[in-house]
Design a protein around this nucleic acid. Structure first.
Lengths: 273, 273
DNA sequence: CTACGGCGCATTGTATACAATCAATGCCTC
DNA sequence: GAGGCATTGATTGTATACAATGCGCCGTAG
C-alpha cells in the first residue's frame, strides 16, 4: 500500500480508509444474504472460506462475524465457529414482543414527524413490494417487507429506535425462515399500505394498526421446532474467488438445534461454547 | 492434547475456557466503571494501558472495546482510539424515548409474569437503593438505580427486551453523567417503589407509571452541551499494575464534542473515522 | 456387525511483529 | 513573536505464524 496510497489523494478530510469501506461491504453482503434467506439458519460460516471468497484476510472476516453475532443473526460457538443463528421458539416470541413495543413507538413518532417526502418514498417502496408479490419473488418480498419497517423507523427520525429495530428485523427474518408455514406468505398483502394511510391521515390508531400487523405475522408462523437446509457458501455469493474452487465444498450438516443455550441469556451477546 | 489435557479433567461438558471468563471479567469491570461514572465521558481508553492493567494482551482488550462500542458506551474513532462515549443531546432524547417504549412493555409483561419471589428480590434491592440515598453515595445510587430497571426487565422474562434495555440503561447513565443538573439527584426518591407496588397489585396503569417515571428523569436533566472531566485509568482501577506509574498519566483532553457524527447514524454501530 | 479408542486434518483462538496513522514538539521562516 | 512545516514518539490497524481445540476417519476388539 505505497504507490497505491500515494495515488489516493484523500478526497474528503475524513475519508473512510477504504479498507473500512471494504469491510462494510462484506458485512452488508453477508447480512443481506442472511436476511433474505440465501444463507439458511444453521449454515456454517467458515472464516477461511469467506476470506478467500471476498479476497481479504481472516481478521476482517472475524470482525464482521463478531458484529453479526452481536446483532443476533450469527451464533458463535467457542472453538467451533460461526453459524447462521437458529432462533428458538421462545426467542421468536420474545423478538416479536419487542418489535411490537418498538414499532408501536416508531409509528407513534411517525404520526407527527413523517414528512410528505418520506411518505412518498414509502409509497414508492410499497409499489416494489407489490411487484415482488405479483412476481411471486419470495426472496425479494421478504427483504422488501423488512425494509419497509426499517425505512419507516429511519424516516421517523429516532436513530436509536431504528438501530434496535434493525437487529430485530434481521432476527425476525431468520425466525420466518425457520417457522413459516411452508408455501404460505407470512405477510398479509396490504397491511403495510393501511398503516401508511393511517399515518398520513394522522389517525391516532395507527400505532395499534402496526401492533396488530405484527401480531398477524407472528400468528401466521408455526412456532414449533422445524429444520434448516444448510447450503454452500461459494454458490450463494457467486464466483468472486475462483481459486481451487471445487475442492471441499459440500454442505455442512451442523444444523442441530441446541435451543436452550441460544434462547437463555442474551445479555452479553457473544454466545459462549 | 496429551499430558496437560489429561490433568484438566473437564469439570463440565461445556466448561468456559477460562480465558473467556477473564475477558468477561474485564468487560464487566470496564462496563461498571463507565456506568457508575468512575470513567467520565470522553476518557480515552488506551489499549496498551488497559492491557497492562489487566495483565492481558491487546487482542483481548480490543475485543472488549469493540463490544462496548457496539453497545454505544464507547466510541471508536479510526486510527485514534476508543473513548468513553459522549452522547449528544439529540441522542439523549432518543435514548429516553426508546426506554419509554421498551420499559412500558417490560412493565406490561411484568404485570402477569412477575413472581412473588421476583417481587421480593426487587423490594430487597429497593432497600439498598434507600441506603445509598441515605448515605448520599451518589455513585452507588446511580448504579443501583440502573440495576433496578435492569432487574425488573430480566425478571419479567423477555431476554430480548432486557438485553436491549441493558444497552439503553448504560447509555442513559452516560447521559446523566453529562447532563445532570449539578448537585441534584436525577432520580425521584420513591417512584421505583410506587411502580413495584402497582405491579404487585396488578394495577393496569403500572406501565404508564413507568413511562412517567422516565419522563421525570429526562426532565430533570439539563439537555444542552456540557463538559466532561477526563480521568486517569490506573487510578480508578486500583493499582493492579504499578510499573512506571506516574509517568504520562495526565488526563487527556480529547473530550471535544463532535456531536454530529455521534448522533447521526447508529445503524452500523462502529463509529468510523 | 457394532462400539470404542486413537490418529490426523481442518478450523478456530491468540500472540507477536510490522506497517500506517495521528498528535505533539521543536525549528525555521516571515 | 507568530505561524507553518517537518520530524519524532506513541498508538492503532493488519497480517502472519503458532498453539489449542474439535471433528471425522480408520482400525481393532468384542
Amino acid at each position: 500500500m505505497n504507490a497505491v496510497a500515494a495515488k489516493r489523494t484523500r478526497q474528503a478530510p475524513t475519508a473512510e480508509p477504504a479498507a473500512v469501506r471494504a469491510q462494510d461491504a462484506i458485512y452488508e453482503r453477508i447480512w443481506t444474504a442472511i436476511v433474505d434467506h440465501s444463507l439458511p439458519p444453521g449454515t456454517k460460516l467458515t472464516e477461511d472460506r469467506l476470506g478467500e471468497i471476498f479476497g481479504v484476510g481472516r481478521t476482517r472476516i472475524r470482525q464482521v462475524l463478531f458484529q453479526l453475532a452481536h446483532e443476533g443473526v450469527v451464533s458463535l460457538q467457542h472453538n467451533r465457529g460461526a453459524f447462521v443463528a437458529q432462533p428458538s421458539v421462545r426467542e421468536a416470541r420474545e423478538v416479536f414482543e419487542a418489535r411490537r413495543a418498538i414499532e408501536w413507538a416508531v409509528v407513534a413518532r411517525a404520526l407527527h414527524t413523517l414528512s410528505p417526502a418520506g411518505i412518498r418514498r414509502l409509497r414508492e417502496h410499497l409499489r416494489r413490494e407489490d411487484a415482488a408479490r405479483a412476481a411471486s419473488d419470495r426472496r425479494a418480498l421478504i427483504k422488501l417487507s423488512g425494509d419497509y419497517h426499517l425505512m419507516l423507523a429511519e424516516l421517523s427520525g429516532n436513530s436509536v429506535l431504528s438501530g434496535m429495530l434493525r437487529e430485530l428485523v434481521s432476527r425476525a427474518s431468520l425466525i420466518i425462515a425457520l417457522y413459516e408455514y411452508p408455501g404460505a406468505h407470512s405477510c398479509p398483502p396490504d397491511e403495510h399500505g393501511a398503516i401508511l394511510d393511517a399515518i398520513e391521515k394522522r389517525a391516532a390508531h395507527a400505532p395499534d394498526l402496526m401492533r396488530q400487523h405484527l401480531e398477524h405475522v407472528e400468528r401466521s408462523l408455526v412456532l414449533r421446532d422445524g429444520n434448516a437446509t444448510p447450503l454452500d457458501l461459494k454458490h450463494v455469493f457467486g464466483g468472486s474467488g475462483e481459486r481451487h474452487a471445487d475442492q471441499s465444498d459440500q454442505p455442512q450438516h451442523d444444523a442441530r438445534h441446541d435451543a436452550k443455550d441460544r434462547s437463555g441469556r442474551r445479555k452479553r451477546s457473544r454466545a459462549r461454547h
